[in-house]
């Protein structure tokens, strides 16, 4: 597969260098809600979740979000504020596990999350065909601890509207993980079922890798390597790659590179340097926070370390 992106200095850039996303991000930072509205409205079904993620990551609580809701009250205004509320909620909670999170932190977390939930409900009501409010509500269901049945109900609403919604699948893998009261079996069954059902060239098959990475997080480095190198797991990684990132119809949409990052990580651990090298090539410096933050507090450093290791082995 030819390399489409010029090799660049590895960096964490949530826009992945996409011009529309850059413009959107600049508008977010400047509080230019007209541009935010227009870019979001013009984006396709796979582009919208990517842009909303930029809204979620916007620090603080910009007042223009409230002003937008008050002035327009449109589905997208509520959707944007709801998506932002999720990131804002997690900012007060922190990313530590529940037992290391204080009562005050949880209180603030739930308060902000419930406000986000109200916005997302409103957005779903105003735009009944849009999968986005439901995809965001897959995330709030987890944070609000609404249980796995409710999580499944919301995810079903997403895939009724967009069967191969990347972000909803990723969030579902998280929601079914053991650390969120699910189990490895439940998470793997979900990932395999969705991957097998997906048409080739869809990032949904990367769910399988995501699930294996999640399972491996409880292991130390040596055991992680053994886990991924086990024939059954490695074979499944390859099958998932063939069905997605290695497939000719793999899309060039900017945030599809997230799947490449996951495969690069897993193949490096598995010792399949050739497969890993292909992924690093496709990534072309567009580093995602996960999974590299699992091996280094500085995700970019973790990425570079793995990339070098693979480069040494393929030489």
């Amino acid at each position: 597969m030819p390399v489409e992106h010029a090799p660049a200095e590895p960096a964490l850039d949530p826009t992945f260098g996409d011009p529309d996303a850059r413009r959107f991000q600049a508008a977010l930072r400047a509080g230019d809600r007209g541009t935010v509205r227009d870019v979001l409205a013009a984006a396709g079904a796979d582009g919208r979740p990517f842009l909303l993620r930029l809204v979620t990551e916007l620090p603080g609580r910009p007042s223009w979000l409230d002003a937008w809701v008050d002035a327009d009250g449109t589905a997208d205004a509520h959707l944007a504020r709801g998506a932002h509320g999720i990131g804002w909620a997690w900012a007060v909670r922190g990313t530590a596990r529940a037992e290391h999170t204080s009562r005050e932190q949880f209180q603030g977390f739930f308060e902000r999350l419930r406000a986000a939930e109200a916005d997302l409900e409103k957005a779903a009501e105003l735009a009944p065909d849009d999968p986005e409010p439901w995809a965001q509500r897959v995330i709030t269901a987890r944070g609000l601890q609404l249980g796995h049945e409710e999580l499944a109900r919301r995810f079903t609403r997403v895939i009724e509207r967009h069967p191969w919604h990347r972000r909803a699948h990723t969030q579902m893998v998280q929601g079914l993980a053991a650390k969120w009261s699910g189990s490895d079996e439940l998470m793997l069954n979900f990932a395999r079922e969705r991957a097998a059902a997906s048409p080739p060239g869809r990032a949904v098959a990367a769910c399988v890798v995501e699930a294996h990475i999640e399972i491996s997080l409880t292991l130390d480095d040596d055991d992680t390597a053994r886990y991924f190198a086990a024939p059954a797991v490695l074979d499944e990684l390859r099958a998932a790659a063939a069905h997605s990132v290695d497939h000719p119809s793999w899309p060039s949409e900017p945030d599809a590179v997230r799947a490449d990052n996951l495969f690069a990580y897993a193949f490096t651990f598995a010792g399949d340097s050739a497969a890993a090298a292909r992924r690093f090539e496709a990534i072309a410096g567009r580093v995602t926070e996960e999974p590299w933050n699992y091996v280094d507090d500085d995700a970019v450093k973790g990425f570079q370390r793995f990339e070098k290791r693979v480069a040494r082995n393929v030489r």
Binding site: A197, V208, A232, D235
Partner: peptide, 14 residues
């Protein structure tokens, strides 16, 4: 349980 994906046969059944 859902069987693992495998390279042995096409992953996409339908």
């Amino acid at each position: 349980p859902v069987p693992p994906l495998t390279t042995e046969e096409p992953a996409h059944a339908g």
